[in-house]
Computed example of a mutant assay.
Amino acid sequence: MNAITSTSSIFSDAEEFVVLSRELTAKALDYSELVDTIAAAALEYNAGQIQSPERMVVPLGAGGVMLSMPATARDIGIHKLVNVQPANKKRQLPIIHGTVTVCDTETGKLICLLDGPEVTGRRTAAVTMLAIRTLLKKVPREVLLIGTGVQARYHIQALYALYPQSKVWVRGRSETSSMAFCDQYRSLHSKLVPAEHSISDDVNVVITVTTSTQVVYNETALRDRLIIGVGAFKPDMAELGKITLDGSDIFADDPVGAHHEAGDLIQADIDWSRVRSLADVLQGQIDESHPKVFKSVGTGAWDLAAARVALKAIHAGH
Rank of each mutant, 00 (worst) to 15 (best):
I4Y: 00
E15Q: 14
E16F: 02
V19I: 15
L24T: 11
A28N: 07
L29G: 02
D30T: 06
D30E: 11
D30H: 01
Y31D: 03
S32W: 07
V35P: 00
D36I: 08
D36R: 13
A40T: 13
A42Q: 07
A47V: 10
G48M: 13
G48D: 08
G48Y: 03
G48L: 12
E54R: 09
M56D: 13
M56R: 05
G61Q: 08
A62Q: 13
G63F: 09
L67W: 08
P70Q: 02
A71Q: 04
D75Q: 09
G77S: 15
G77T: 07
H79C: 06
N83D: 00
K90S: 12
K90W: 07
L93M: 14
I95D: 00
I96N: 01
V100G: 00
V100M: 03
E106P: 00
T107L: 11
K109Q: 13
D115N: 06
P117G: 01
G121Q: 03
R122Q: 11
A125P: 00
M129W: 01
T134E: 15
L136N: 11
K137E: 05
V143D: 10
L145W: 03
G149R: 03
L159Q: 10
Y163M: 11
P164S: 12
W169M: 06
R171A: 04
C182D: 07
C182L: 11
C182T: 10
Q184L: 14
S187Q: 14
S190Q: 15
L192C: 05
V203H: 01
N204L: 06
V205S: 07
T210N: 08
S212F: 10
T213E: 13
V215R: 01
T220P: 01
A221Q: 13
R223W: 08
D224T: 08
L226H: 08
L226K: 13
I227C: 09
F233Y: 15
P235F: 15
E239P: 00
I243Y: 00
T244E: 14
L245D: 06
D249Y: 04
D249W: 04
I250S: 00
A252I: 08
P255I: 14
V256P: 03
V256Y: 03
E261A: 04
I266E: 10
Q267W: 12
W272D: 01
S277Q: 09
L282S: 10
L282C: 15
Q285P: 00
Q285T: 12
Q285D: 05
I286H: 11
P291K: 04
K292G: 00
V293R: 02
G298T: 03
L304K: 04
A305Y: 06
R308K: 15
